[in-house]
Computed example of a mutant assay.
Amino acid sequence: MWKTCCAGLALLLCCASQAEAHFGMIIPSSSSVMEKKDAALKLELSFSHPMEMQGMDMAAPKAFSVTVGGKKEDLGKLLAPAKVMGHQAWQASYTLKRPGVYQFAMEPTPYFEPAEDCYIIHYTKTIVGAFGDEEGWDEPLGLKTEIEPLTRPFANYAGNLFQGRVLLDGKPVPGALVEVECYNKGQRHTPPNAYFVTQTIKADENGVFSYSVPWAGWWGFAALNTAAEKMDYKGSPKDVELGAVLWMEFVAPRGK
Rank of each mutant, 00 (worst) to 15 (best):
residue 2 W to A: 14
residue 3 K to Q: 14
residue 7 A to N: 14
residue 9 L to V: 15
residue 10 A to N: 01
residue 12 L to P: 00
residue 20 E to M: 15
residue 25 M to D: 04
residue 25 M to Q: 10
residue 28 P to Y: 04
residue 28 P to W: 03
residue 31 S to A: 12
residue 36 K to F: 05
residue 37 K to N: 12
residue 38 D to N: 10
residue 43 L to G: 11
residue 45 L to V: 15
residue 48 S to D: 04
residue 49 H to R: 14
residue 52 E to N: 09
residue 53 M to A: 05
residue 53 M to K: 06
residue 57 D to Y: 01
residue 59 A to W: 04
residue 59 A to F: 06
residue 60 A to E: 13
residue 61 P to T: 12
residue 65 S to K: 12
residue 72 K to G: 01
residue 72 K to D: 09
residue 73 E to V: 12
residue 74 D to P: 12
residue 76 G to K: 14
residue 76 G to C: 13
residue 77 K to C: 03
residue 79 L to Y: 07
residue 80 A to N: 10
residue 83 K to R: 13
residue 86 G to D: 14
residue 87 H to L: 03
residue 87 H to P: 04
residue 88 Q to W: 03
residue 91 Q to E: 14
residue 94 Y to Q: 08
residue 94 Y to M: 08
residue 98 R to Q: 11
residue 106 M to N: 06
residue 108 P to G: 13
residue 114 P to C: 03
residue 115 A to R: 12
residue 117 D to N: 15
residue 118 C to I: 00
residue 119 Y to T: 03
residue 125 K to P: 02
residue 126 T to M: 06
residue 127 I to V: 09
residue 131 F to W: 01
residue 133 D to V: 05
residue 134 E to N: 11
residue 136 G to D: 02
residue 137 W to L: 05
residue 138 D to N: 06
residue 139 E to P: 06
residue 140 P to F: 04
residue 142 G to M: 08
residue 146 E to C: 01
residue 148 E to G: 08
residue 148 E to K: 15
residue 150 L to D: 04
residue 151 T to G: 01
residue 152 R to S: 02
residue 153 P to N: 02
residue 153 P to E: 02
residue 161 L to P: 02
residue 161 L to M: 09
residue 163 Q to T: 13
residue 163 Q to R: 15
residue 164 G to P: 10
residue 165 R to H: 15
residue 166 V to R: 04
residue 166 V to Y: 04
residue 166 V to D: 04
residue 170 G to Y: 10
residue 171 K to G: 00
residue 173 V to I: 09
residue 175 G to T: 06
residue 176 A to H: 11
residue 180 V to P: 11
residue 182 C to R: 04
residue 182 C to D: 08
residue 183 Y to M: 12
residue 183 Y to T: 03
residue 187 Q to T: 12
residue 196 F to Q: 07
residue 197 V to T: 08
residue 206 N to G: 15
residue 207 G to P: 06
residue 208 V to L: 03
residue 214 P to I: 01
residue 215 W to C: 07
residue 218 W to D: 10
residue 220 G to A: 14
residue 221 F to I: 10
residue 221 F to N: 09
residue 224 L to N: 09
residue 224 L to A: 06
residue 225 N to V: 07
residue 229 E to G: 03
residue 230 K to E: 15
residue 231 M to F: 09
residue 233 Y to L: 04
residue 234 K to T: 03
residue 235 G to P: 14
residue 238 K to W: 00
residue 242 L to I: 08
residue 248 M to K: 07
residue 250 F to Y: 13
residue 252 A to T: 07
residue 253 P to C: 07
residue 254 R to I: 07
residue 255 G to N: 13
residue 256 K to N: 12
